[in-house]
């Protein structure tokens, strides 16, 4: 088991390395070297770069030298936390991403919680009471959730939240709080703004998970061990929750791996529609503006999150599946 975890960790590191090579390739994608692009970019915005500055930048990133040397110089800086400078924002990438990564994680986590707290009970109910009226209603809304593009749902929900409930929509902070320093007040402001985007982000995933849970549980409910549990005199509730639901949880654990990057990249359009200060819109902007250091860094970040997600999902799977655990020993 420890051997398995170690192997997974090493594989994760290897994957991360491959992703970093890919990210660097993306940074190098635009024609010419990126210092040219940088100079051009700055020139178009009215400021100039001295020849001296350009040369020191070229020196810094080893431009003109072979790819692996350039990569080596770049990755050496990345490892110590220097991701280069965003050309568009003219600030270090790490500062530009800054708070956004934490807000993204907070939002993603909130969306994940909403997804699970909705999907689990609804899925269980739909399976246990298959073909009941409620099952049909959930199925109907589930297909709407899967079929309708999320940003459209976001717009509709925003409209109703604003006109009917008078809720503040868009963004994660009130106007006066956006630039305020972090404190209890700002955190509370965030908590108040979090539910709406979290629910919108969670909808598609919820609809999917409900279908998965329902299908799995329907399979499990027919298995002989359920009869065994009933024959022991357990109540129906306890029978269902302890045995078949436990077995049907497996895909939830596997699904975890995809949730992590999905929550950042999957929510891009929603984040733009809702004006959320998360990483997603930043990625789109940086790609449009050919802000390669920023884009490369975000791609790297997404890759690393996928690796972390997969790793966590492996651990959770081992925890919920004793058979898997024992196969490894």
């Amino acid at each position: 088991m420890i051997a398995f975890v170690t192997r997974r960790l090493l594989l994760g590191l290897l994957t991360t390395w491959l992703i970093s090579v890919l990210s660097f390739a993306i940074i190098q994608l635009p024609p010419g070297d990126f210092v040219d692009a940088y100079i051009a970019q700055l020139a178009s915005s009215g400021s100039a770069v001295s020849a001296e500055e350009a040369r020191s930048l070229r020196e810094l990133y080893g431009l003109g030298q072979p790819f692996y040397v350039q990569y080596g110089k770049w990755i050496a800086r990345v490892v110590v936390g220097d991701f280069g400078e965003s050309m568009e924002w003219r600030r270090p990438v790490i500062e530009v991403i800054g708070d956004r990564i934490w807000l993204t994680l907070a939002l993603s986590f909130a969306a994940l919680i909403v997804t699970w707290t909705l999907a689990l009970p609804i899925g269980i109910y739909s399976a246990v009471r298959q073909y009941s009226l409620a099952d049909y209603i959930f199925t109907f809304f589930g297909f709407i959730g899967i079929a309708v593009p999320n940003f459209l749902l976001a717009l509709v929900i925003m409209y109703f939240a604003f006109t009917l409930l008078g809720a503040s929509v868009g963004g994660l902070f009130s106007a006066e709080m956006t630039l305020a320093p972090w404190g209890w007040e700002k955190a509370w402001d965030l908590i108040k703004h979090l539910p709406l985007p979290a629910v919108i982000l969670a909808l598609a995933g919820t609809a999917q998970l409900v279908r998965i849970m329902r299908a799995n549980l329907l399979d499990e409910l027919r298995k002989p061990y359920v009869v065994t549990a009933r024959a022991k005199g357990l109540s129906e509730m306890r029978t269902v929750l302890k045995y078949p639901v436990r077995a049907a949880l497996n895909p939830f654990a596997s699904n975890l791996a995809y949730q992590f990057p999905q929550l950042i990249s999957g929510g891009i359009i929603i984040s733009i529609v809702l004006g959320l200060p998360t990483v997603g819109p930043l990625l789109v902007k940086s790609l449009v503006a050919k802000d390669m250091f920023l884009a490369g860094t975000i791609v790297l970040l997404l890759g690393v999150l996928t690796v972390i997600g997969t790793f966590i999902s492996d651990l959770v799977l081992m925890w919920v599946e004793p058979r898997l655990r024992h196969q490894l020993d």
Partner: peptide, 9 residues
């Protein structure tokens, strides 16, 4: 085999 749950001891 099938009459036992594989998830509990």
């Amino acid at each position: 085999m099938a009459s036992f749950s594989q998830h509990y001891t």
